[in-house]
């Protein structure tokens, strides 16, 4: 069994008086796909955003690929290149083409010359089957295509781990498939992934482990068959039951 590439220990997060994460431990092994589920407001997004320090945890420790993310001396911008993130709302830069979106960090963070950055960006777009849309602006792309560009933007930096926060929730049903396909291919290429999503079918098919969160804590975790087929905790059972009924 390979070593943990993401390791969060005793992570707490307060928003003012609101205690959102109440001591979360999560270890993700290399090449593992961890699926995070749980009711709205349970802290899934907050946990994900703590992992690349978009949110500052109030307490606990987080290491990613051997780097202490919470150490003041860590160059956070350098560390973030190793952690790709995909957002529910895509967050593509509307004033740049698909290629420009992908190439920006390659040029400005990795310091590649323009031609090389664009070549790498093109490769990344090819991996999500959008090479032919390189010159399009986000406004000219469908939601599904935009999300795949966002995935390309993250993988172009060759991250060690990818975080997905509800990547298909803002999409029309017929566009979900393309994004899931891109994620499946990413997984087959051996990417370590942490995915927050309601796509239970995808979880069953692709996840190594499912983590159920509620009220800022990890309530239960295990292989998908166990969590979906035979949940141990009452709260998990209730949540799974609710989803299955839909």
């Amino acid at each position: 069994m390979s070593a943990a590439i993401v390791e969060a220990r005793g992570v707490h997060k307060h928003f003012g008086g609101l205690h959102v994460l109440k001591g979360v431990d999560l270890a993700v092994r290399e090449r593992e796909l961890v699926f995070v589920i749980g009711p709205s407001g349970s802290g899934k997004s907050t946990l994900l955003r703590c992992l690349n320090r978009l949110e500052e945890p109030s307490d606990g420790s987080i290491t990613v690929d051997g780097i202490d993310m919470l150490d003041r001396r860590t160059d956070i911008n350098k560390a973030r290149q190793r952690i790709g993130m995909v957002f529910q709302s895509f967050n593509l830069y509307p004033h740049m083409t698909a290629l420009g979106n992908v190439a920006l960090a390659l040029r400005r963070v990795q310091g590649l010359p323009r031609a090389e950055a664009e070549a790498r960006a093109r490769q990344a777009l090819e991996r999500v089957h959008l090479a032919d849309r390189a010159g399009h602006y986000p406004g000219q792309l469908s939601g599904g295509q935009q999300q795949r560009v966002a995935i390309a933007r993250a993988i172009a930096l060759e991250p060690r781990v990818m975080l997905f926060d509800e990547p298909t929730s803002a999409l029309d049903p017929e566009l979900v498939g393309g994004v899931l396909q891109a994620m499946r291919e990413l997984r087959e290429s051996g990417m370590t992934m942490v995915v927050v999503s309601h796509e239970m079918g995808f979880a069953r098919a692709a996840a190594d482990r499912v983590v159920f969160m509620d009220g800022g804590r990890i309530v239960e975790e295990g292989p998908p068959e166990a969590i979906f087929g035979n949940p141990q905790q009452e709260r998990t059972r209730a949540f799974i039951g609710q989803i299955e009924r839909h």
């Binding site: 560390a79 790709g84 957002f87 967050n91 960090a105 993250a154």
Partner: peptide, 13 residues
């Protein structure tokens, strides 16, 4: 939108 900041910062900018 705040998401623009977050997307850019998440790529290390």
């Amino acid at each position: 939108p705040k998401g623009q900041w977050e997307a850019a910062r998440s790529t290390g900018l």
